[in-house]
């Protein structure tokens, strides 16, 4: 029996599963294809409210794909087909009645590479708010609030209306992108390797930020960095070849992994 067959029939190992009532997002039997190639195999998992969930796994295992299917960003890729359900607050976001644009307004996303718009810092953060029709002094207040929450306010407060977002350093740009995402106060924040393009100090700043954001938001973060996962996440998902191998509280995952692949991966002996 080769590895692929083994994983396809694999039942996810769950430690301390999340009760339905605590889940903000409930993924049920999610299969996803890019054209003919299947990238996700029967994923079922719950993401608990006001906690940080980390997704780890080797490159190409489908972490980003799973993350993107939580806010229907995959719809933008031609040839993608999805089966199964993603319940957000009990509503299946893949229901034909659901507008993916509305879904994305409720769910924030931060990308691997900082991608501020070539506009001022203010306009960057205001973008999502303007889409929702926020105007005037409320707009201004909420932009400032978002910059404060993203721990960027002190660095930009005297120039944020004039300076282009592109003129910031990489770490500042990433915090700007976080501010932009949280300005609309999305209950759920998705982050795809948000620190992989940053130096250790900027990474530290963002990790601190994520821990603070937990109070208001539910965070799902993809990371390649084991230490990062153990430092900031409450729960961890380990994926391999499009399959969710094992999930559970971070501490237990890192100290007592149950599946041999999980153990191999987190101890760095994978492959």
């Amino acid at each position: 029996m080769n590895a692929l067959d083994f994983l396809k029939d694999h039942e996810t190992i769950r430690t301390d599963p999340v009760p339905e009532a605590e889940a903000l997002v409930d993924v049920r039997h999610l299969n996803l294809w890019y054209g003919k190639a299947q990238a996700l195999f029967g994923i079922s998992v719950r993401f608990p409210r006001n906690q940080v969930t980390a997704i780890i796994g080797p490159s190409g295992c489908g972490k980003s794909t799973l993350l993107r299917s939580l806010n229907r960003m995959n719809d933008l890729i031609p040839g993608v087909r999805v089966e199964g359900e993603v319940l957000y607050e009990g509503i299946n976001i893949y229901d034909p009645q659901v507008d993916p644009v509305a879904v994305r307004r409720h769910i924030g996303m931060v990308f691997q590479k900082p991608n501020p718009f070539p506009k001022t810092i203010f306009e960057n953060v205001a973008f999502g708010l303007r889409l929702m029709g926020v105007k005037g002094s409320e707009l201004e207040d909420r932009v400032v609030e978002a910059l404060k929450r993203a721990a960027l306010w002190n660095e930009v407060k005297d120039r944020f209306k004039k300076e282009s977002g592109l003129r910031l350093s990489g770490g500042q740009q990433q915090r700007l992108c976080i501010a932009r995402a949280i300005a609309v106060e999305p209950p759920l924040l998705l982050m795809d390797e948000p620190t992989s393009a940053l130096d250790p100090i900027a990474t530290q700043a963002i990790e601190d930020l994520i821990l603070e954001l937990k109070e208001h938001y539910t965070v799902v973060i993809v990371t390649h960095n084991m230490q990062q996962a153990s430092r900031i996440s409450d729960r961890t998902l380990f994926m391999h070849l499009g399959v969710l191998v094992e999930e559970g509280p971070t501490e237990l995952m890192f100290t007592k992994p149950k599946h041999p692949y999980t153990e191999a991966y987190i101890t760095g002996r994978f492959g």
Partner: peptide, 14 residues
């Protein structure tokens, strides 16, 4: 860059 389009889509832009 495509990343700008993705950023805008992710914010719920049509």
């Amino acid at each position: 860059p495509e990343s700008l389009r993705l950023a805008a889509f992710a914010l719920g832009a049509t």
